[in-house]
Nucleic acid binder design. Structure first.
Lengths: 336, 336
DNA sequence: GTGAAAGCGCTAACAA
DNA sequence: TTGTTAGCGCTTTCAC
């Protein structure tokens, strides 16, 4: 814990400005009339001492903690990093600090989170069970959900952001069909804990929906799921193709998986994009550098980050939760 | 702020267990003899209510806040994300929460940080000025520095982790020289704020040192620096080569820049690795998927993450700062 | 316009 | 072994 006695407190400001401590609070919170000259003296003292009200004490007293918690199931990928980076840029000016936490599916986790007095919670996860989301909502902390999946019980108790996953994947399928592809694979996530996509997952859902609209089949044949690692996927996909799986198009759940799949089909002797078109998701850096370069869907991360902070701000101010949707943007490259 | 009245407090536990509040504290902090039966009743009540001591109140009272702050200059890249992910895994079990903050070079930033009562600070930045690091050290919060650069004033006031950058880049140069390369370029970072490397930067330093040991020149000819974006770098490098720059080897500051450089030299008609060998740094995912696949240096992120938490724990326990060094590992692929 | 004082949930010194 | 109490830094009610 910070033992530093040199960090100024409200008392120091009051002394330097020659006013009572209460006056300092009034000036800083701007919620009471204070004589002009005193106000000025206080502000000067604040500046001189580089005083910042102790966030912890404030939070304990029931004010804002200026602390936002971001709960996610994959805090290491580029997509997530970019959103957090952008959030930090906006949030810093508003005085917010952002914490990162990987989700755990147990009620201890919920209790842990509740023991922190945070101003807002953002959840971006497909694997975090809805009952725990509901537990968190019960404690009445403003919450924003990034809709990677559908929730059944949340209703309008949390703000929701549709990041364009479902519509985006639908457009991926459309593009492939327009290119004349019919034997289209969907590459599902790899997971060591058997957390594969269900139709709750908006990307997977988008795939199924659009395929159905074209009258194309969706089955265990063309949904590539159940692998525990990228290596397994790489080998498994090759085996399937050697065993006669027909494929002329691939939609990857993200760029990384699309690249794994691309490497696998190329290892099978298929030419991209002549024999098969491949499309990823996220428009991450690597899509520019793989060979052939990878067509991908760009997600509006800046817009999403802004929306998160805005929504949280509004809910903290007492407004009800809201909903916002974002579009994705197709970035076409060599792989299609 | 969390308005939730249902989150249990110490009082609730005391009531349920039929003991005084102090007893609850003593049991939880395990620092006083408490009658066996009472201790059991307390622990039962804790479990039943899912009670967690309010971290904020604790921190205010001068105890641990269980809060670690990670300050960095690039919170969106994969390398950084992996370290945080690993830290979270270890830290969660110890009750720590990790916050992320992009550095800002002003004293307001320092004051902001000080207003949070954090248990420890981790800094991984090349651009964050040392005077602000010193200001942070003054407030006596345990600190771990990831040594991306040399510091001149820190001395042993903070724990330091050498992540292998300098030695790693030296090995990169060695590898290229062993392959018979002599006209070796170093690709420096791109920066919109003119924050290019100086010899404080351990990667750049490693390059200079090893080149000198081989009697090879280092000049503005072969240090590719000063570009504001990857696009500028891509174009600029091609121009230089068209203007006669001789090059048969490239060391990229990271995989991403190495890929940009690789794309540029290939666009100039050079063959990789026949005409030119290229090596990156970080062993990020993309190095597996670019064509040709990219030789790179793997950093021991798991080890580093562990070391960070261990060091912080020890300093929080009152032990003096320490130093640790990690080795990098060469992952050779097609580009060399 | 201003100040005194209570109290947020917790720890630890002190007293019993 | 246990309870009482002061106080961490702050906000806000209430009285002046």
């Amino acid at each position: 814990m910070n033992q530093n006695r040199s960090t100024p407190t409200r008392k120091d400001v009051a002394q330097l400005a020659g006013v009572s401590e209460t006056i300092v609070s009034y000036v800083l919170n701007n919620n009471r009339y204070v004589a002009q000259e005193k106000r000025i003296r206080v502000l000067q003292a604040v500046k001189q001492l580089h005083y910042h009200p102790n966030t912890v004490a404030r939070a304990l007293r029931g004010k804002k903690s200026n602390h936002i918690l971001f709960i996610a199931d994959n805090i290491s990928n580029e997509h997530f990093g970019k959103i957090v980076e952008e959030m930090d840029r906006i949030a810093y000016d508003k005085g917010y600090l952002i914490s990162l936490l990987a989700d755990r599916n147990d009620s201890e986790f919920v209790a842990q989170v509740n023991s922190r007095l945070v101003d807002g919670i953002v959840i971006s996860s497909t694997g975090f069970e809805e009952k725990y989301v509901m537990d968190l909502i019960q404690s009445e902390v403003p919450m924003v959900l990034l809709m990677n999946r559908e929730y059944n019980m949340v209703g309008n108790k949390a703000s929701r952001i549709y990041t364009g996953l479902q519509q985006g994947v639908k457009e991926c399928v459309k593009l492939l069909v327009e290119k004349g592809r019919r034997n289209i694979l969907y590459i599902d996530r790899v997971s060591q804990h058997h957390r594969y996509s269900t139709t709750d997952d908006l990307r997977y859902n988008g795939f199924c929906t659009q395929m159905a609209e074209y009258g194309l089949p969706v089955s265990s044949e063309n949904v590539i799921s159940g692998y525990r690692s990228e290596e397994e996927l790489y080998v498994g996909l090759q085996n399937r193709i050697h065993n006669g799986l027909k494929v002329d198009g691939i939609v990857g759940r993200n760029d990384n998986l699309a690249c794994v799949a691309m490497a696998a089909v190329m290892a099978c002797g298929l030419k991209v994009p002549q024999d098969i078109s491949i499309i990823g998701f996220d428009n991450s850096r690597m899509s520019n550098y793989v060979k052939p370069t990878l067509t991908s869907m760009e997600i509006d991360r800046t817009g999403i980050a802004r929306a998160i902070i805005t929504m949280l701000d509004e809910m903290i101010a007492g407004n009800p939760p809201s909903v916002q949707a974002f579009d994705t943007k197709l970035i076409e490259r060599e792989s299609t």
